[in-house]
């Protein structure tokens, strides 16, 4: 395992019970996401994309297999360490918006920082995050006033404001037209490269994957990748990293 590897899923399986019926959603999924790259996983509705993200982000434990973050097995982490991981290292872009309709976006994006920063400093960082994703003019806006594209970008700013090592986004291009999709996907790719973070997204539309460094297809609980894979590393998404030089 290399230093650059931010997230690693090793033969991860996950099932749900619906009454007496067990549905296996993920079957021996192996996936690595490195700093500086954007990995996109496509799947049809109900293929397990969101479950994959939840397991990858540590929100749900796998039934089998190992999820590691920066070489650390999540199962070995204490509750306090998990809380710190979810708060500081993993950014999940939620498009549900703030609880309060009255909150201005500057304050909404600043919220995750309030525990450790003054309001003034948090707002300054929030303004920077909003500007970075190209929606500085939404600072004074409220969630209900934003377009779908702006909501996606504000959500990414909200997840990025704490400068996480891993950004996770479920269907970032929902309800966007082709040009807005290009803008959002271009942003996610450049965020990975310029901020040197790992970005993992799931998409129901294949055109959204065109900007990703690496792609995979989730079907029947298995991950299919474009190139041949060896039997020992079945389902592993493992491509050369583009964008930045390999560290150390």
């Amino acid at each position: 395992m290399s230093f650059r590897e931010c997230l690693s899923l090793d033969r991860v399986s996950k099932s749900y019970w619906r009454g007496p019926h067990e549905t296996t959603v993920l079957k021996y999924i192996s996936l690595s996401v490195f700093a500086g790259e954007c990995v996109a996983v496509w799947g049809q509705r109900g293929s397990g994309k969101t479950t994959l993200l939840k397991v990858a982000a540590g929100l749900e434990p796998p039934d089998d297999g190992i999820v590691s973050f920066k070489d650390r097995d999540l199962r070995a982490m204490s509750k306090a360490e998990m809380v710190r991981l979810l708060r500081e290292e993993i950014g999940w872009a939620r498009r549900s918006g703030p609880e309060s309709d009255e909150l201005e976006m500057l304050d909404y994006v600043a919220l995750p920082l309030l525990k450790g920063h003054t309001l003034r400093r948090a707002r300054r960082r929030s303004a920077q995050a909003l500007a970075q994703v190209g929606v500085a003019d939404c600072c004074k806006g409220r969630w209900e006033d934003l377009t779908d594209s702006e909501r996606t970008l504000v959500s990414i700013a909200h997840a990025m404001v704490r400068k996480p090592s891993l950004l996770v986004v479920d269907d970032p291009t929902a309800n966007l037209d082709l040009l807005q999709r290009e803008e959002v996907m271009g942003l996610l790719r450049s965020t990975a490269e310029q901020e040197w973070i790992a970005v993992l997204i799931t998409v129901p539309d294949m055109p959204s994957m065109v900007h990703a460094h690496r792609i995979g297809s989730l079907s029947d609980g298995r991950l299919l990748v474009p190139s041949g894979v060896s039997p020992e590393r079945d389902n592993v998404v493992d491509f050369p990293i583009r964008g930045k030089a390999v560290l150390g």
Partner: peptide, 27 residues
């Protein structure tokens, strides 16, 4: 053929350099 389709998608992927920040708006 599913693998071939994915390989073709891989070939269609954008390979040019990322846009500079601040990014040009799609419009």
């Amino acid at each position: 053929q599913e693998e071939q389709c994915l390989a073709r998608l891989e070939a269609l992927k954008r390979v040019d350099a990322p846009a500079e920040s601040p990014r040009p708006r799609s419009d």
